[in-house]
Nucleic acid binder design. Structure first.
Lengths: 238, 238
DNA sequence: CTTCTTATGTGCGATATCGTGCGGAGACTC
DNA sequence: GAGTCTCCGCACGATATCGCACATAAGAAG
């Protein structure tokens, strides 16, 4: 079981590593179960670990408890989080938590940084993912500035779908409202609109994607660019 | 005149360098005049240079010509741009241009990367700025999601003021509307509201800040955190 | 001084989204 | 199988922002 074998790993970043880099960090990877609402970090808390998901979805959120908040990033097994350690900081003003339960590996910052300082290839791969995550955030800012709720919701469902096995996404309207910083009722009615267009099916506790292409067409320019950038920066190296 | 002397430089990142790091890159710094609307890069264009401003303000924008667009980052002499080269990428889906004319230095990516690979201290400083810029973008996404126009506008004016000498900011309502992805008329009327609160004075072609503290209070939680993060990550190292 | 261009001011109906309140329905508990 | 909790549906007035049309004003050009 430990250290994990590279052939067993599903996280795309870990999969992209050279055997040599993988062998260096594998002994320090600690398998961890990540239930729903698991808190990876909170604002200004010193983060000790970087998490590589194998399944499930995490959210990066700006805001303060009891006040306004909004999601500014989402990640699954295509990446890792938090990204700050790679940039020489020890904390960031974000909360990061599991939005869909899953599992993964975590590794102490010190170990991943040591490995990265010994391998240019590893360091560059990790930094390219940081870049991809940053582009995702930039397009979230763009979408928030220019899109109507219908587009923002469609974009969010697509990003979630990309990180899910199957077409069913477990979530409540209330949760979606918090992520997008809109009213729960607006989520409900907008989901009905999308359902009316046969793009999704929405029932208590989940949304099922029915027409990805239709959703993508609906989002216009907000969805797609970050995803292509990710493929350009990361996947093509596999 | 060349290479520039460290004591003459006003860019905060360059100022923060050790003498040794500065001496390594100084011979490659090329002084450049940056008029209004100067295009630093466009989407997917291979960027060859990194720009360190000495004066003026640059904007990072997502969007496509003739379509929707929105600003996702702003920088002056406290940083540099673009940030992608540091992360191992050669381009990014952003446009970057001068919004307020100024001047600065540019350095070929190859030179700064060579210097960064030889100096952990330099690399970490540059990456910490990348982190600070990324946090700014995250809070722009947050502000776009949760704030009304009045707050977004106030936040934008504050960020601009931080990067300007004096209290007068030259810009048109039209330009501001494009940056915030709102109507020019909404800018006009909202500036009137801020003026009514004696926070600014607005006249043809410029806005003058009159009450910074008042503006900051107005923005609530959207303004301030990225700025504190910048100071924590960068300035305290001076 | 006149003309031209760019920037700003204003009005108004249309639309998107919000805040609030409440009712119903699925699921879980005892 | 009654109580309870969470999630969802619906209505409605209030507010923010938009889109469009047009008027005025400041500065530039001649």
């Amino acid at each position: 079981m430990f250290p994990p074998k590279k052939s067993d790993v599903r996280n795309k970043i870990l999969m992209s590593l050279s055997d040599r880099d993988f062998d260096h960090i594998a002994p320090h990877l600690e398998s961890i179960d990540l239930p729903k609402r698991f808190l990876i970090t909170t604002p200004d808390k010193i983060g000790d670990y970087i998490y590589f998901l194998e399944s499930g979805i995490g959210s990066v959120v700006v805001g303060y408890p009891g006040g306004k908040s909004a999601e500014i990033g989402i990640f699954g097994r295509e990446g890792f989080s938090p990204t700050v350690a790679l940039q020489g900081a020890d904390s960031a003003p974000f909360s990061i938590f599991m939005q869909v339960a899953g599992a993964g590996y975590r590794i102490a910052n010190a170990h991943i940084l040591a490995a990265a300082s010994n391998s240019l290839e590893l360091r560059n791969l990790l930094l390219r993912y940081v870049q991809a995550a940053s582009i995702q955030t930039a397009y979230t800012a763009f979408s928030n500035a220019t899109d109507h709720i219908e587009q923002r919701l469609a974009r969010w469902l697509l990003m979630c779908h990309d990180r899910t096995d199957g077409d069913k996404i477990d979530l409540t309207h209330d949760f979606l409202g918090v992520m997008l910083a809109i009213r729960r009722q607006s989520v409900t009615t907008t989901l009905h609109v999308l359902e009316g267009k046969h793009l999704i099916v929405s029932q208590r506790g989940f949304v099922a994607i029915r027409d990805r292409a239709g959703l993508e067409a609906l989002t216009g320019s907000s969805y797609g660019v970050p995803e292509r950038e990710y493929r350009r920066l990361i996947s093509q190296t596999i």
